[in-house]
């Protein structure tokens, strides 16, 4: 079986910095994979190259056997790549519900300017129902109509997650979903993510510093440092490797 996401020999430089240095990894359908590594390792840059925010200097990215690395962000999103952002990218001046509604309409892809002008553009009943269902699942129903600026960082991350889910992705890239949450909240988030991704059959690649969350969510992990993958396998195996311990935990082994 071919992998859902296949990254081959990606390379990306910023001036003299090698943010990605020959990175290869793969994610199979319905699989949850962790990506760990110290700050500045190149994790966010890798996400950017997969989702199209940045173009890699070299290498290729395939989604379900189809080469995607020359497509724009929105084309990749339409092919099934959803993501959240380490530094929140919310739609200011829109409520949480509106975030979901616009994503739901994009998923259906049946909106057009012509329909708007014929006064048929407003959210339909079934769209609102689906959105409400997801808001419930995420525990955002109380905050659905609050101004987005009044949400906490953790709630903002949930809105980003909901927006990405509403778009109906095949692969979800989560960039530090638990930062800004306390340990209880992040345990809840782990359960929620596991549940949602299993039920909706979504593969996830998650960047996370909270190893507890990674452990409960991901079947296997990749470890990055200085732009390279320095380890892969189950979390236990990987943390046993001395090179990883040195890079990631700063252990003197």
């Amino acid at each position: 079986m071919t992998a859902l996401l296949e990254v081959r020999n990606l390379r990306k430089r910023f001036g003299g910095i090698r943010a990605l240095d020959d990175v290869s990894l793969e994610v199979r359908a319905n699989e949850a994979v962790g990506l760990i590594g110290p700050n500045g390792a190149g994790k966010t840059t890798l996400f950017d190259c997969i989702s199209g925010v940045q173009r890699a200097d070299r290498g290729r990215v395939d989604l379900a056997g189809e080469r995607i690395d020359d497509l724009g962000v929105y084309r990749r999103a339409r092919l099934g790549i959803g993501r959240t952002f380490q530094r929140l990218e919310l739609f200011s001046a829109m409520t949480a519900r509106e975030h979901m509604l616009v994503a739901e309409r994009e998923r259906r892809g049946d909106g057009s300017l012509l329909k708007d002008l014929l006064w048929k553009g407003a959210p339909r009943r079934d769209e609102i129902a689906r959105v409400d269902e997801l808001l419930d699942e995420l525990g955002l129903e109380e905050l659905a109509d609050a101004p987005i600026e009044s949400l906490s960082l953790g709630q903002g991350r949930l809105v980003e997650l909901g927006r990405a889910l509403m778009r109906g992705p095949r692969l979800l890239l989560l960039d530090e979903p638990s930062s800004g949450l306390d340990s209880l909240e992040s345990a809840r988030l782990a359960a929620l993510l596991r549940d949602i991704c299993e039920r909706r059959q979504i593969a996830t690649l998650v960047v996370e510093h909270d190893l507890e969350l990674v452990h409960s969510l991901a079947q296997r992990v990749y470890v990055m440092d200085f732009g390279s993958i320095i380890g892969a396998g189950t979390l236990e195996d990987v943390l046993g490797e001395s090179s990883v311990r040195r890079a990631y935990l700063g252990d003197e082994v």
Binding site: A77, F91, V102, R163
Partner: peptide
């Protein structure tokens, strides 16, 4: 609100 995020949902 965010051009980047808008593109990320297609």
């Amino acid at each position: 609100g965010s051009e980047l995020a808008a593109a990320s949902i297609g």
